[in-house]
Amino acid sequence: MSASSATNRGASSPRRDHHMPGLPTAVRRWRPGFLTSSRRVTLRRLLRPAPLGLLLRRGPVSRSWGFDRGLPIDRYFIERFLGLRSADIAGRVLEVKDDGYTRRFGGDAVTSAEVLDIDAGNPAATVIADLTDAPQIADDSYDCVLLTQVLHLVYDMPSAVRECHRILKPGATLLVTMPALSRCSGELQHSDFWRITPAGARRLYGDVFGAENVEVLAYGNAVLGAAFLMGVASQEVGARLLRQHDPLFPILVTIRATKAR
C-alpha cells in the first residue's frame, strides 16, 4: 500500500490503538475527571509496579554479558541467525578475529576460512588489514564475509560496508550482527562507538548493496533487554520469552546483504 493510500484510508475511518483495537480514539482517551495527571501516574505505578528485585540491586549480576552464567542473550540470537543462514557460509569465507563461527556453521561447505584483524599480534589472523580500507584484498575475493558484533567498533561504518561489498564476489553474501542495545565494552570502551536500529541498518546497507538485496531482522523485547543489561544468561529467561520480539525494543539487529551479480 502506498503512503498516500494509507493516509486516505486513515482519514476515512477512526484511528485505532494497537492496545485497544476495538475502541475509537475518543473512548480510548477518556480519563476520569477526578484523577489529576500526577494521581494517574501514581495509580499506574501502583497497578504496574517496577520489579523490586531489580531496583534493589546495586549493579548487574554479571559484568561479562552473562558469559559466566551461560550463553549471553545476544549470543543466543546471533547463533540463531547464523544457523538460519548457514547455507550462505560456504566457499571462501572471511571472518574477523577468529574463524569460530565460520567452522561451526559452515562446516565442510567452507573451502577456505580466512581471518581478518587490524592487530598483527593476533596469531589467528591470516589477513592484516583495516576493514575500512584494505587495498591488499583483491576485488571479488570472497563467497561470504561474516561480521558478528564488529561494525559498532568501527567509527567509519559506511566505509567498512563499502569495502565489504568490494571484496565480495558477485552473488556473494555479507552476514552481519550489530547491537541495538548493549552495555559498553570494558576492554574496547574507547572504540565502542555505535548502536544501530533496524531502520538505520536498512539505510546503511541499502545505500551500498541496494535495498532489494538487503534483509534486516531485529530480535528482542523490553524484558530481555533489561535482563541482558543486567548480565542474565539466555538459559535463565526461558524459551518462551526468547521467542517474543517487540520491534520497539530490539537487542540485536541482523543483516543479510547480497552483492548483485
Rank of each mutant, 00 (worst) to 15 (best):
F209L: 02
V208D: 05
R183S: 00
A201E: 00
P247L: 09
G220P: 01
R203T: 07
P247F: 11
L175G: 13
A180G: 01
F249I: 12
L188E: 01
I196Q: 01
L224K: 12
H245K: 09
N221A: 06
V223I: 15
A199S: 09
N213F: 10
A226D: 13
G171M: 15
G171N: 12
S185I: 03
A218C: 08
F193L: 00
L174M: 12
V176A: 05
V176Y: 01
L217M: 14
F193R: 04
A218I: 15
M230F: 15
F193I: 04
L252Y: 09
L248K: 08
A227C: 12
R183P: 01
A211F: 15
E187A: 02
Q189Y: 07
A222V: 12
C184K: 01
M178A: 08
V237N: 10
L224V: 15
D246N: 04
A199W: 01
G200C: 11
F228E: 10
N213W: 13
V208E: 10
V223G: 11
D246V: 08
A180E: 01
E212I: 14
C184A: 00
A233R: 09
Q189F: 10
V216H: 00
W194I: 08
I196V: 13
G231N: 15
H245P: 06
V232K: 06
P198R: 15
